[in-house]
Design a protein around this nucleic acid. Structure first.
Lengths: 117, 117
DNA sequence: CGACCTATGTCAGCATGTTGTCATTTGACA
DNA sequence: TGTCAAATGACAACATGCTGACATAGGTCG
């Protein structure tokens, strides 16, 4: 799904997190949201900045830890992604009772919470 | 969980597949069961043979594609794994109604089947 | 039997993720 | 204000996975 847009799943995740934030996130911040190491995120964002999807912005609250924001190209990619993914998600779930999906989601959350302990 | 046994999750997966087979599997066969590339499995099994967990056995049905079998050390590791994982699985699910777990499993299977289409 | 497609082994390059280490910046606290 | 722990950046080593490519073995069909 991401391939047609020139993205990969890892970049998709990063774009998604940033798109849902208001004023940009630091690299370690993105890592915390994704539950990944900051080093892994750093590598991805560096490449994405090179590719023009993201840009680093001065962080008024921290001298070294810059904020990661979407460029116009990044925002376009995010929207293109949504235009593909949303219909896909609907297509694959529309014939399943909402109660079933909800119960499944609650079960998964419950298990995750147990595993984190 | 695997770390204490000197294993990794990738090796765990391979051992599990082989343990459930009767007379050994070929590398591409393991890959098909796991839904992974044969190259990825080949790399893992090569290391595991070096480490003494697996051994390659002549395949009467194929000159080049050998069978992968568990060594005694491999069987011991598998059992040690089960001794840790089974209680863990029970511990994390015993207070959840079996109907809920079953419904969740059916939902996941249903979604996977949709995604595969 | 020979041609041809498929399966397999093998090597290479790449993407994604982890952990460990060390220097530097931040921020809280005595 | 000085100290010190936590957070961050940066680099390295490694594990796991993918795809592509090429040669060889297996099996089917004319």
């Amino acid at each position: 799904m991401t391939e047609a847009l020139g993205l990969t799943s890892a970049r998709w995740k990063v774009i998604g997190v940033i798109a849902l934030s208001n004023s940009g996130l630091t690299v370690p911040g993105i890592a915390r949201v994704l539950g990944q190491s900051r080093q892994a995120v750093q590598r991805i964002t560096d490449v994405m900045v090179t590719d023009g999807l993201l840009s680093y912005q001065t962080n008024p609250k921290h001298k070294r830890s810059v904020l990661v924001v979407l460029t116009e190209e990044g925002k376009t990619a995010y929207q293109a992604l949504r235009d593909v993914q949303d219909p896909w998600a609907i297509r694959n779930t529309e014939d399943i009772p909402i109660e079933d999906l909800d119960a499944g989601l609650r079960l998964v959350h419950r298990l995750i919470q147990k595993f984190d302990k």
